[in-house]
């Protein structure tokens, strides 16, 4: 797909305006998974605004973001970095063959006590 089109789609899906970012880095200052991310929360906002989608599509951060909304909560400019991360993740998994969870492999991933809510979440977040 055309890169420009992809960037536009991601922006629309995220529902957030990256231009409002004043580059203060508070999202990254607050993120509990910062050290697990290759591309940091503030960089998601910056890269999407610059249109550099490839860095984001290939980022491991898509799978280490905890979806805890700390970045959304604290942004002084009303930008939602987590929404951008989610929108990029959707862009990845909506492509055929890009599902990240194979149902047949689930039994080996889980234990007795795991709540089924976690399984549903996992499929919703990583598969389409």
């Amino acid at each position: 797909m055309d890169k420009l089109e992809q960037v536009k789609l991601v922006k629309e899906r995220s529902g957030t305006d990256a231009r409002k970012c004043m580059k203060c880095g508070k999202c990254s200052g607050r993120c509990p998974a910062y050290n697990e991310m290759d591309v940091k929360p503030h960089q998601f906002v910056s890269y999407i605004e610059k249109g550099d989608i490839d860095k984001l599509l290939n980022s491991k951060s898509l799978y280490t973001c905890l979806s805890c909304f700390a970045c959304v909560e604290r942004c002084p400019r009303g930008v939602a970095p987590a929404n951008v991360i989610e929108a990029v993740r959707q862009e990845v998994i909506r492509v055929q063959g890009e599902n990240k969870i194979q149902a047949e492999k689930v039994p080996e991933m889980i234990d007795e006590t795991i709540p089924q809510q976690l399984l549903v979440s996992m499929f919703r977040k990583l598969n389409k």
């Binding site: 880095g25 508070k26 200052g29 607050r30 002084p76």
Partner: peptide, 18 residues
């Protein structure tokens, strides 16, 4: 960079920021 959180640990104020 901005600070995201200040919390207390072992009598210190932990200032976590970018």
């Amino acid at each position: 960079g901005m600070v995201g959180k200040v919390y207390e640990e072992n009598g210190k104020l932990m200032v976590q920021g970018a």
